[in-house]
């Protein structure tokens, strides 16, 4: 719910920097918990995007509303 709240605040451009940092920090923390799983073992940086889904008549329409800044990941040695 908190992450969803951050995403909504970014979408309406309310304190976007703060909310972007909150989401990035949580993604990094989750990745570190996985101890550099195979899928991210070679990744050096991360970036997230916000995709909002809206129903327009009978269709679900996706819109990418935000790309975050690119953040350097801690090296595997530091995990």
């Amino acid at each position: 719910m908190f992450i969803a709240g951050c995403a909504e605040r970014i979408a309406v451009n309310h304190n976007a920097d703060h909310n972007e940092t909150e989401i990035l920090e949580r993604i990094v923390a989750d990745l570190l918990k996985e101890k550099a799983a195979v899928s991210i073992a070679n990744a050096t940086h991360i970036q997230f995007r916000l995709v909002f889904i809206e129903r327009v008549n009978d269709e679900l329409v996706e819109e990418t509303v935000f790309h975050s800044r690119i953040k350097k990941l801690p090296t595997v040695d530091n995990i």
Binding site: M1, F2, G5, R9, N15, H18, N19, E22
Partner: peptide, 10 residues
């Protein structure tokens, strides 16, 4: 700290 209620309505 969280710039508002942390978890919405709850």
């Amino acid at each position: 700290r969280f710039q508002g209620p942390y978890n919405g309505g709850a």
